[in-house]
Amino acid sequence: MCCRVGVTIMSEKVKLEIYRYNPEQDDKPYMQSFEVPVEKPGMKLLDALNYIKWHLDGSLTYRRSCGEGVCGSDGLNINGVNGLGCITAIEGLKQPIQVRPLPSMDVVRDLVVDMQHFFDQYKQIKPWLQSSTPKPEHERLQSPDERAELDGSYECILCGCCTTSCPSWWWNGDRFLGPAALLQANRWLKDSRDDATGERLDDLEDSFKLYRCHQIMNCMEACPKALNPTKAINDIKRSLAKRKV
């Protein structure tokens, strides 16, 4: 079974259609077709992009760094769904594989988008420990249970796949913080060492910053680390309800 359907053989070629835009030459973006040989079993989409850049068209521009789903540089829209190029297998993708930049972002060039606003929003939730207790000699301790509260939040690599998949963020991204920033906001709310819970909740209680989430769940479907920002947002809403009602 495994070796018949959909498995690409060594000499086979993969068809890709890639979003191209060079601000110095192009008036508007267009899709360009490429054919890439399958060089090894388990080939990832990033390998195909690398092949194009190194052998077919050196002008193709994209971000990548670690190549193994840890740095969060190569968030892309692959066949209509956001994901990381480096951990998305070519095998099983419908061809021609449509590769576009993360949705609803300013395109700098080809697959590279301007992440400034995304990281500004991350900064807005103050992603650092705020403690009122004196600094201990070594470290601030947590019990294993308190540490376990952070599971499902700390794994986030800020690749932007979730935030740029969210229709609410597409329409109101200037004000709605988006799934990634809100997942992190919830991470600091849950941290036993953090003493700024009240101020953090104050900063979130806003019909645009937080309550634009309408359970569309694209973020949860897109997250390459299998996290659940929708649940995190609901946790924040419940925390607000708890201190208010």
């Binding site: 979130l204 209680e205 806003d206 019909s207 910053k209 607000l240 009602v245």
Partner: peptide, 10 residues
């Protein structure tokens, strides 16, 4: 923050 949104939601 405007401090709004909770009541609509509630």
């Amino acid at each position: 923050t405007a401090g709004t949104g909770f009541h609509d939601w509630y």
